[in-house]
């Protein structure tokens, strides 16, 4: 089976002599659903950041989508990011753009025509049950609605990999369920690899998944 993410003796740190992840080795299969758990400050978000190139490996090797993440060039990183969908805990929506344009962002970046982008966005907004809100701005929506918009944006360009950092951290039950359903749907129907960083794995999850836990800078798989 193809590997989307391969880490070999991966060490991550923000400052020298302050290792957050130490010599981690693991591989994530294409089309798999993975949870990464750990206590607050354990380094799970840092690990996720390394997957989309926001932090470079201090030591060891990290390959994402076949791209080596150490000393990666800007153009290569941009290319890789165009094939990844990211969901953040704080949504990271562009406040001055409408919901429709926010969801359209990855399609604009990938150079899709307006017609294709529009129909894709309408479809996704339908999935997240926000079609009637498409003309609104992010700050006019609730937290749950904003996260659903962020989820639609992450799915817009049919990415090979979805990275979600505490996607339901601050959400109500309904919005959380919509998010989990979408992540499961992307994994089962589109065979998209999903990596979710979270405190707790929801009991409602129906897809088979892998579980990695981070403790004291070490990452280990939980059977």
């Amino acid at each position: 089976m193809d590997k989307v993410i391969i880490a070999e003796n991966l060490s991550l740190s923000y400052k020298e002599f302050e290792t957050i992840i130490s010599k981690a080795s693991f591989a994530i299969d294409a089309g798999s659903f993975v949870f990464i758990t750990g206590a607050s400050g354990s380094g799970k978000s840092t690990l996720l950041k390394s997957f989309y190139g926001a932090i470079e490996p201090r030591a060891g090797q990290l390959m994402v989508g076949g791209v080596k993440m150490s000393r990666i060039s800007t153009s290569k990183l941009n290319f890789l990011r165009r094939h990844i969908g990211i969901v953040f805990q704080d949504y990271k929506l562009i406040k001055e753009w409408t919901i429709e344009k926010n969801v359209m962002l990855p399609l604009i970046i990938s150079g899709y025509t307006k017609d294709i982008s529009s129909s894709q966005v309408q479809k996704l907004l339908g999935h997240v049950k926000l079609i009637h809100q498409s003309g609104k701005f992010p700050l006019e929506l609730s937290g749950g609605e904003q996260q659903r918009v962020a989820m639609a944006r992450a799915l817009a360009h049919n990415p090979i990999l979805i990275l979600a950092d505490e996607p339901t951290g601050n959400l109500d039950e309904y919005s959380s369920q919509v998010i989990w359903n979408l992540l499961e749907g992307a994994n089962t129907q589109l065979k998209t690899t999903v990596v979710v960083v979270t405190h707790n794995i929801p009991s409602s999850i129906t897809v088979p998944y892998k579980h990695y836990h981070i403790e004291m800078g070490n990452i280990h798989e939980i059977a």
Binding site: T74, R81, R82, L93, I94, W97
Partner: peptide
């Protein structure tokens, strides 16, 4: 800065 950094997270080149 915020808008530009969000666009960068989705792989937008500098010119875009």
């Amino acid at each position: 800065a915020e808008r530009m950094s969000i666009m960068a997270l989705f792989g937008a080149p500098v010119w875009l």
